[in-house]
Each structure stands twice: as structure tokens, then as C-alpha cells.
Design a protein around this nucleic acid. Structure first.
Lengths: 247, 247
DNA sequence: GCCAAAATCCCATATTATGAGAATTTTGGG
DNA sequence: CCCAAAATTCTCATAATATGGGATTTTGGC
């Protein structure tokens, strides 16, 4: 009644999740409440434009247009391009996974990653959303946001004050270390990627199992991560960054 | 007049290309002919849903939702998952780039790739569209399509008959080799990835510079590519019918 | 080549998308 | 910090078009 038709169209894409990657028209009608002709009209449009594709069994899945557009996003993203060599170097020097998490105003997404062994590769692939207030990669970004934005994100959390105390230290140190916050048994070490104005654009993080972490020279790790972050920040400065305010 | 509003909404995303990754509202109005309020309504919706993001200078670029959705596509795509180790192995054994090209009914896209040296990595990244009737990867798919589909694609090309002759051999051999067809100086060797019914789903291809190719045992290359393709086909077949239920 | 199920078509109706112009907010310069 | 200029959003009357019930065609399984 009150939602526009474009919104209803895009809602179809919202159905797809890691848990549910294929939908039949009947299931969509059931879930979304659209009439049969309307749903099929939307499906036709999304299929013709490549956002959806037909799967065996009369079901639908996400289509090639998505793949094509992500290629363009990668091409347009200076942080991704500049991060990759540094991620490769970090992954070469330290165990675990090195990855970059980008701040999109209301969302954190891993946008690039590298790791020595292929098995770890899947743990943080490009496109996987991250929690906003847990883990080293998130906290180091949070720590560099203006207070009012921090508060909006921490919101009604019971542990908001505890987190705020940590963030203060993180901001001073330029590095955040987090134990077991996102994945049990994993330690993350992250540093912020900032624009000229000191606003956070992204963060770079190295994560690994606790036992490996404890066998390391953690000061060297912190330094390496901090240095990588600064290198990306400096390169990114040319591209400027005002993405933060409006989003 | 005759195009629906959803179509107009999605047309905004069509503006973005490798050549033009950022658009201002004024440029969009100029190009698309939408009125100011209408365009801004569309932009607000696309920004709120994350398909677009604000860039410095009041311009717009593709947004994080695209990245998220591509992650889901990768997660839902059995061919990508199963190809990667084989691509890595091929890239390890042969120079150049090994990649998988997927057939989406009317489009060919590279969906995964690997190469020994990082410099080559960019030549066929995931998401880059490929021509339908040029190059080894495309021809080997074309060769396994039903005739009527082949004809639809070859269509009005002057060299259609010549291509048809080649395709016949390709189909018999199960391998296609193409010199200089997509990129000057590059030779590609490809084999088809087929479903149980023998319909082409994708192809796997190894491409390299002519001089390197000529220094190789090309029979071994052909065999390796053919074997890799068959391995992926077989794995895809096991999963066939199952990715329908759980996916 | 048959049948059931799925997808599309038809068309009257009401919903809602649209655009001119104005009001508002944001931005950048001094 | 203030102001002017530009960018964005709002209001609202109108026309356009999205919608859904039901008929029709197409598809896929045997």
C-alpha cells in the first residue's frame, strides 16, 4: 500500500541469503504477498536484466549482472586495488588471514583478503558482512568515528560503556586487538585506513588462531599492520574521502 | 512512455561501466531524461538499499549491496567452488592465466581465475564479460550448444560458416585452441564443462603469450585442460539435483 | 503426444508514479 | 561564522501505469 513498486522489485533480491540461495515463485508469493502476475512481471524484469537467473526445478537464483557489477565495484574502488599487494605481503609474513574491511556508512564488509593457506581463504571472503561493534577490524573503525556516530551504533547495548573505554585506547594506539569476538579461538589485530580528515574509510586486519598468535612477536605484528594501514591511507588520500558523512 | 518504472530504476545501474564509474545527478538526468524529482527518488531508493553510494563531489558510484550479492552468488555457485583448486593446479603447472568462463544463456562471464604471477591476475578477473563467439573459452561452449542456439549467436556474422566448421572439430576434440582472438599475442586452450545432458555450463581455459605456448608440450596442455574440465563436470553432476533442494 | 502445473496474457480499475515549481537543506567560498 | 549558490527534497494535481482476477498458453514429466 505505502511502498513503491521499485522497492517491491528490489525486495525480491533481499530474499536471497547465505542460508537460502534459491527460491521458487510460489515461495516468493507466499513470502512477499505479491499477486501472481505481479510477481512474474518482476521476475521477468529481473531475469531479463540478469539480476536473477533460472535454476533447475523452476527456481530462481542471483544472476550474472551481480557478478558483472561487482567487477565494476572492484575496478572503481581504490582501496581494494591498493590493498591487495599489502595483504599478500602480510599473509606471507604472518599466519592466518589478512583482510580489509570497508565502512559503508552503515555496514561493514570485507572487500579483499589474502592468506597463505587456501583453507583459510574462505573464512573472510569479499562481500561477507561483519558485525559493527565486534572484532578488531570493526572496533578500530568505530574508534575513529565521531562520538555521535559511535553512540548511534553502540545504542542500547548493555556493554556500551565498556566498549567506549576500549575505543579510547584503540584510538590512541592506532591498533586494536580482539580475542574471540567474532569467531571463537581467533585473535584479530587491526589498524584504521583514514582519509585526510582523519575519518575512517576502512581497516586492515590480520586474524589467526590463538595459539599461533601467542607464538608471535605481537609488537612486530602490530607495527606491520599499522604500517600497512598507513600506506593504504596515504595512497587513498589522492582519491579523497567524503563517503562517510552522508551515507 | 512504454517502459515500466522498475526498468527505469534499473537503467540507472546500466550507466556504470569500466569507462565511467561515477555519475552526477545532472549527468544522469541528461543521459536518461528523467525529471529531477523522479531521478532523486530513484537515487534515494538505490542508495538506501545500498546499490549506489555517494562519492565525493556529489557523484554516485555502485554500492556495497553489489559486493554482498556477489558473495552470495559465489556461495551459491558450485562451479566456482569446485574449479578453484583445479585452476590453482593448472596455474601452477602452466604459465599464463587459468580461468573459468560461465555461460548464462546470453552472456559469458569469467567467474574464477588463477595465475602464477600476480601481474597476469588482472587480465581475466571475475565478472569481466567475454565475447560470445571469439576465443577458445567461448568457442568450446558454443560448440556444445544446440544448432539453433549457435545460429542465433553467430547470426549475421560474415564469418559464420568458417566458425561453424571450426566448431565441428572442437566438438569432436573436446578442446578448442584459439590464437589472438580475444587479446593480441595470446593463445587460449579451453575445454567444456558439461552437465549430465551434455549441455555446456561453462568452460575452463588456460591462456598465455604465443612464445610461451610454442615452448610447451601442447598435447600435455590440452590433456590437462580436458581433464580439469571433466573433473569439474563430474563434481557438478554429483551435486546436480542436490543444489536445487538445499541451496 | 498426452496431461497437469507453471507461466503469461487480457483488461477494467484504482493506485501511484510523475513533474512543475517552490521550499528546504547542504555545500563551498570568503 | 556567515552568506550565496547549488543540491536535494517537498507539495500536490494529474495522468499514467501497476495491479490482480480470471482466461489462456506454454512447459515439462511420463
Amino acid at each position: 500500500m505505502s511502498r513503491g513498486s521499485g522497492e517491491r522489485l528490489l525486495s525480491i533480491l533481499d530474499l536471497f541469503s547465505e542460508e537460502r540461495l534459491a527460491w521458487s515463485p510460489a515461495e516468493m508469493m507466499d513470502r512477499l504477498g505479491y499477486s501472481r502476475p505481479t510477481l512474474y512481471r518482476y521476475l521477468k524484469l529481473l531475469k531479463d536484466t540478469g539480476f536473477l537467473t533460472s535454476l533447475p526445478g523452476g527456481r530462481f537464483g542471483l544472476g550474472p549482472r551481480v557478478v558483472e557489477l561487482d567487477f565494476l565495484v572492484r575496478a572503481s574502488d581504490p582501496i581494494v586495488a591498493r590493498s591487495q599487494p599489502l595483504l599478500d605481503a602480510l599473509a606471507d609474513r604472518f599466519p592466518g588471514t589478512a583482510f580489509v574491511v570497508q565502512w559503508y556508512g552503515d555496514k561493514l564488509l570485507c572487500v579483499a583478503s589474502a592468506s597463505r593457506d587456501a583453507t583459510a581463504r574462505t573464512s573472510y571472503p569479499r562481500g561477507r558482512p561483519m558485525p559493527l561493534a565486534a572484532g578488531a577490524a570493526a572496533k578500530v573503525i568505530l574508534a575513529h568515528l565521531p562520538k555521535r556516530r559511535q553512540d548511534a551504533i553502540l545504542g542500547a547495548r548493555a556493554d556500551a560503556d565498556a566498549i567506549r573505554a576500549v575505543l579510547k585506547d584503540v584510538r590512541r594506539d592506532g591498533v586494536s586487538t580482539a580475542f574471540w569476538e567474532v569467531t571463537p579461538g581467533i585473535v584479530g589485530t587491526a589498524a584504521p585506513i583514514l582519509d585526510t580528515g582523519g575519518h575512517p574509510l576502512a581497516s586492515i586486519c590480520v586474524s589467526m588462531g590463538t595459539e599461533r598468535y601467542e607464538a608471535l612477536d605481537t609488537t612486530a605484528l602490530k607495527d606491520a599492520v599499522r604500517r600497512a594501514a598507513r600506506a593504504i591511507s596515504e595512497k587513498a588520500i589522492e582519491a579523497d574521502g567524503k563517503e562517510i558523512e552522508d551515507a
